[in-house]
Amino acid sequence: MTTPSNTDTLPQGTRIGRTALHVNDLNELTEFYRTVVGLSVLEESDTHSVLGVADTPLLVLEGDVDAPTRHQSAAGLYHTAFRVPSRAALGDTLARIRDHWQLGGASDHWVSEALYLTDPEGNGIEIYRDFPREDWPRSDDGRVRISTEPLDLDSIEAAATGDTQAPPGTDIGHIHLEVSSLDAFRNFYVDTLGFEVQTTVPDAAFVSAGGYHHHIGANTWHHRTAPVNGRGLSWFEVLVPNQGALNAVQLRLDGRDIPVTETDDGLVIHVPDEIEVRIRTDPSAL
């Protein structure tokens, strides 16, 4: 077993992989993410769709016509955040939203520029582009500072090129969860998995690996009290850069007696609120 020198935190290069949604109308959701978000359909069947950019899968839609609506008390997804590589790509995204859907909000976060919307089944979406990392404001202790300011949509629109698809380099930059307890969130994602807290705001925390502004956000704004259920988030992936990092995660999980299912791809954990997290080595790093 190869173990990295620092076994307490996740290493540089850790990132979010695929996100999966449990959906009722598979055809409608597939068309939405193709037309509005700009993803390509990489794989499609009667029961699921895989969408992504180029040959990289980003989103899995698991269809179930009998899937109940998510209970209003259930934990789960706040939004999936698709990161585009340029302001031009963000401008093209804004054009697609205005042509085919409805913009829910927009913010300058000091570290990024973000657009917000909701898919036809109520799943939150953020589409954003990062400012250069060297321009991110930081506090005295080195943590990234994040704010929410008005976004100049006119300048975003002016950057558009007319592209109807998300460009190469688009990925899932982060995922934001609704949880029942921030203490339980930090106990698992920080103290066990090894993410580091970057920013906290009232009733929310943002954690990352390698100094990113955040890979995972969590909030209790809507006072969720029950485990994840019904339509919405099915699972999401955390990708680590090498086998040594994966081994270190498994050691930390074993040390806390957290049940783990080992698969051919990596590890599967059902964490607080029964949210399924899949952890594996990053295929792009191999």
Rank of each mutant, 00 (worst) to 15 (best):
T3K: 12
P4V: 01
S5C: 12
N6Q: 06
T9W: 09
T9R: 15
T9Y: 12
P11Y: 08
P11L: 09
G13S: 02
G17R: 04
T19F: 09
H22C: 08
H22G: 03
L26A: 03
N27A: 15
L29W: 10
T30Y: 00
V36C: 05
G38H: 01
V41K: 04
V41Q: 05
E43G: 10
E44L: 12
E44S: 15
T47V: 11
H48I: 01
H48P: 01
H48V: 02
S49G: 02
L51D: 04
D55Y: 04
T56V: 10
L61G: 07
G63N: 06
D64M: 03
A67F: 06
T69F: 10
H79M: 03
T80S: 11
R87Q: 10
L90A: 07
D92G: 01
R96I: 07
D99F: 04
Q102F: 13
L103A: 06
G104M: 06
G104K: 07
D108Q: 08
W110E: 15
A114W: 03
L115D: 02
G124P: 00
I125T: 00
E126Y: 01
I127M: 11
R133T: 11
E134M: 13
W136T: 07
P137Q: 09
R138Q: 13
S139Y: 12
G142S: 07
V144S: 13
I146E: 02
P150L: 09
P150W: 11
D152M: 14
S155Q: 14
I156C: 08
A158P: 02
T164G: 12
D171I: 15
I172N: 07
V179M: 04
F185G: 00
G194P: 01
T200H: 10
T200F: 09
A205M: 14
V207A: 07
V207N: 06
V207Y: 04
V207E: 04
A209N: 09
H214F: 00
N219F: 07
N219K: 11
N219P: 06
T220L: 09
T225N: 08
P227K: 11
V228G: 03
G230K: 08
G232H: 12
W235I: 05
E237R: 08
G244R: 05
N247L: 08
A248V: 02
L251F: 13
R252W: 07
L253I: 04
R256I: 05
P259M: 07
P259E: 11
T261D: 15
D264I: 09
V268S: 12
V268W: 06
H270R: 14
D273Q: 05
E276D: 03
I279F: 08
R280A: 12
D282E: 00
L286H: 14
L286I: 12
